[in-house]
Amino acid sequence: MSQNKNTIDFGFAEVPLEEKVKKVKGVFDSVAGNYDIMNDVMSMGIHRVWKRKTIELSGVRPGNTVLDLAGGTGDLTKAFAKRVGKDGKVVLADINESMVRVGRDRLINEGIVGNVDYTITNAEALGFPDNTFDVATIAFGLRNVTNKDKALEELYRVLKPGGQLMVLEFSKVTQPMLAKLYDFYSFNILPKMGKFIADDEASYQYLAESIRMHPDQETLKQMMLDAGFDKAEYINMSEGIVALHRSWKF
Rank of each mutant, 00 (worst) to 15 (best):
D36R: 00
I37C: 09
M38E: 02
N39C: 07
N39P: 04
D40Y: 12
D40R: 10
V41N: 05
V41M: 10
G45P: 01
G45C: 09
R48P: 00
R48H: 14
V49R: 11
V49K: 10
W50V: 03
W50K: 05
W50A: 00
W50C: 01
K51H: 04
K51N: 01
K53S: 08
T54Y: 06
I55D: 01
I55Y: 01
E56Q: 15
L57P: 05
L57S: 13
S58H: 06
S58I: 04
R61P: 07
R61G: 14
G63R: 11
G63V: 12
G63F: 11
G63N: 13
N64Q: 14
N64D: 15
T65Y: 08
V66H: 02
L67Q: 04
D68K: 09
D68T: 10
D68Y: 06
L69S: 11
G71M: 09
G71V: 07
G72K: 04
G72S: 09
G72W: 05
T73A: 05
T73M: 02
T73S: 13
G74S: 07
D75W: 03
T77C: 06
K78E: 14
A79S: 14
K82D: 13
K82L: 11
R83Q: 14
R83V: 06
V84F: 11
G85R: 01
G85Y: 00
G85P: 03
G85E: 00
K86W: 01
G88W: 09
G88L: 08
V91T: 13
V91N: 03
L92Y: 02
A93S: 14
A93I: 04
D94P: 04
D94S: 04
D94Q: 08
D94R: 05
I95S: 06
N96E: 11
E97S: 11
E97W: 03
S98Q: 10
S98W: 05
M99Y: 00
V100H: 01
V100G: 00
V100T: 06
V100Q: 03
R101A: 15
R101M: 13
R101P: 01
G103A: 11
R104S: 06
R104V: 05
R104E: 14
R104Y: 08
R106I: 08
N109E: 15
N109R: 15
N109I: 08
E110P: 06
G111D: 09
G111S: 11
I112T: 11
V113M: 12
V113R: 12
G114H: 06
N115K: 06
N115Y: 04
V116K: 00
D117V: 08
D117Y: 09
D117N: 13
T119G: 06
T121G: 10
A123V: 10
A125T: 15
G127M: 13
G127K: 15
G127Y: 08
F128Q: 13
F128K: 12
F128P: 09
P129Q: 12
P129N: 08
D130A: 15
D130V: 14
T132V: 08
T132K: 09
F133Y: 05
D134F: 04
D134V: 07
D134P: 05
A136G: 01
A136I: 00
A136Q: 02
T137K: 00
T137A: 00
I138K: 00
I138T: 00
F140E: 02
G141A: 06
G141E: 03
L142T: 03
V145W: 02
V145H: 05
N147K: 12
N147T: 11
N147R: 15
K148F: 08
K148I: 12
D149I: 07
K150H: 10
A151F: 12
E154C: 14
L155C: 14
